[in-house]
Structure formats: C-alpha cells, structure tokens
C-alpha cells in the first residue's frame, strides 16, 4: 500500500473513493464532484497535503487535510470496505499529521460522529482530545404562524455579505472549522470553484454566492444577529449571535424572523455547540439529526478548558 497526494487524482476519482468509503457508515452522506469541490473550497482543504491510499491499481482509502494559518483539520478520512482492518486508516492519519507538522501546523482539529467508537479510539491513540459536542440540526420549510418575534422587533437591519463577514470577524467565541470566519469568507469563492476561475473574473459581484443577515434590536433592549447563505432550496451556513438579552429567547426570535423571510426553504445548521442558544433553535422548529465530537491534537503546552468525555 502506498500513500499518494490527493492532488494526483481527479475529483471524480476522489468522490467515488469517498462515497465507497462511506457506504456502510453510521450516517452515509454521499457527494457528487461538485459538492466535493465546494467542500474543498469552503474548508481550505489542501489536496497536495491530503493523501490517497492505493493498493495495486485500486484506491483503498483517503484522508484530507485542511489548512488555516498554523492550524490543520483532518477530514473525509475513510477506508473502503475491501481495505478495512489492515491499518490503512491509521497509516493515513499518521501521514496527515506528519504533513501537518512539516507544514507548520502544530495544532490539528477534527470531528467524529458521536457513536463511531472505532474512529474515536483511533483519534485518541494519536493524542486527540475531545473538546465539545456539536449538533447537526434541520428545520423543514413551513410558514411561521407566530407573529411574536415580528412584534417584539424594534428595528431590523438587512446585512450585505461584507457586513456579515465583519460581524463574524468580531466574534469572541471559538467557532468550529465549518463555521469559522474563513469558511464564511470562502462562500464568495464558490462560483469560482465551479468554473475554475478567479471569483471576480467576469462574474458580477451581485451574482456571486453571498451571505446575508438580519441584525435585530428588540423593544426590550435585546439584540442579536443571524447570518445565512440562501439558495433556491435551502438555507445553509446559519449562524446566530445574541449580543444582549436571554440567549435562547433572542435566538428563537432571530430564527423566526429569518424563516418568516424564507418560509419556502429547507434549513440546515451544522456543528453548533450544545449551549443555551440551541434551545432557541428548538423553539424555532429545529430538531437534532445527529452529533459530532470535536477533537483537537494541541500544540505543545496548549490546553483546552471545555474538556468533555463522551
């Protein structure tokens, strides 16, 4: 078995291998090449430092490495059924960590689906430590019958992409890789990713994918914002921040206002922490689909206080 850079493979080959590695997965989430390309773009996956395991002429596994400044992120790690129980997953992970260390990324993050005990144990054996549980939740499209949020709102500001990015930059909270400000910035690159060109090359700015947002002040002095990416069918990349007031109540009001504007779209939130805002999501009609466990392999002498034992 040899490990080759993922950049030596086509998107079609990587997609097929990824899908085959997930056929009997706990929560199968297949992709097509466009979706994988979007994923690579949004999350700064470095294909030169990602690896594909090959035996003979067959791909038997793959693992990807994202890079942001001095942080790495292991993702899409999987072994095809015919390659299982041969140490291929361990070899892939070891090589990704080697790549991270050699490229100036002493700290590496990842997420594992809660309940995937073999993967959790593999990551622990490489000194990854759980930091927190993250929730993946959805809300089916439906009209918001309750007008309470609308009546409670004193002022609603409609935010453009640049204003949304500014809000995310000002956040003090440590966001998960998927919801970090870099992921939000990369939304602009999605059109470019699909045509393989510069994002501003010939595409009018207003036609590029963009984030939108609502910043709301309520009559009782509460305040907060919700940002999102709206497509024809879905609301994605939803983030909620409560700057003043009870977090669950304000979060619920913000989401109800959002869904009043976008009643026809399905909504999905990924990797939100299980804190008091989650109750606001639930009040606004979201339900939990599954959970991931966020883990970090810290740089030396760094500790994380939000320890958690699954």
């Amino acid at each position: 078995m040899i490990l080759l850079p993922a950049s030596e493979f086509t998107l079609d080959e990587l997609t097929l291998a990824y899908n085959q590695s997930r056929t009997d997965y706990l929560i199968p989430m297949p992709m097509n090449p466009d979706r994988l390309n979007e994923y690579i773009t949004l999350y700064d996956v470095d294909l030169h430092r990602s690896r594909v395991a090959v035996t003979g002429e067959s791909i038997v596994g793959l693992g990807m490495l994202g890079r942001r400044q001095d942080q790495g992120w292991v993702t899409r790690l999987g072994v095809l059924p015919e390659g299982r129980r041969q140490g291929i997953g361990r070899a892939l992970l070891g090589e990704l960590l080697h790549q991270a260390a050699n490229s100036g990324m002493p700290e590496v993050w990842l997420e594992v689906i809660k309940g995937n005990q073999p993967a959790l144990e593999l990551f622990r054996s490489y000194d990854f430590q759980p930091t927190r549980e993250l929730i993946i939740a959805r809300r089916p499209p439906r009209a918001v019958a309750n007008a309470a949020a609308l009546l409670a709102a004193r002022k609603i500001y409609y935010l453009q992409h640049g204003e949304v990015i500014d809000l995310h930059c000002a956040r003090h909270e440590r966001m998960n890789w998927l919801n970090a400000v870099d992921s939000m910035r990369n939304v602009r690159r999605l059109a470019a990713a699909s045509v393989g060109s510069d994002p501003h090359d010939g595409v009018p700015l207003h036609q590029l994918p963009h984030l939108s947002g609502l910043l709301v002040e309520f009559h009782d002095g509460s305040r907060g914002w919700v940002t999102y990416l709206a497509t024809t069918l879905e609301l994605k990349r939803i983030s909620v921040e409560v700057t003043y007031g009870p977090p669950d109540v304000v979060a619920a009001c913000l989401l109800e206002l959002l869904h009043r504007h976008h009643a026809a779209q399905d909504a999905v939130v990924e990797n939100i922490p299980d804190d008091v805002r989650w109750r606001g999501f639930q009040r606004a009609g979201y339900f939990e689909v599954f959970r991931r466990i966020e883990m970090v392999r810290p740089a030396e002498n760094v500790t994380y206080t939000n320890e958690f034992s699954p």
């Binding site: 997609t15 089916p140 069918l233 026809a264 399905d266 999905v268």
Partner: peptide
C-alpha cells in the same frame, strides 16, 4: 435520504411542495 447532489430531506420538502 443520502443522495450525492442534495440532502434527501430537502428533496422531500421540494416534492411535498
């Protein structure tokens, strides 16, 4: 429910509508 181009849930929502 696990489709390569869109989430199955979104597809159900479209079909139901």
């Amino acid at each position: 429910m696990g489709l390569p181009d869109m989430d199955g849930q979104t597809l159900v929502a479209v079909l139901r509508g």
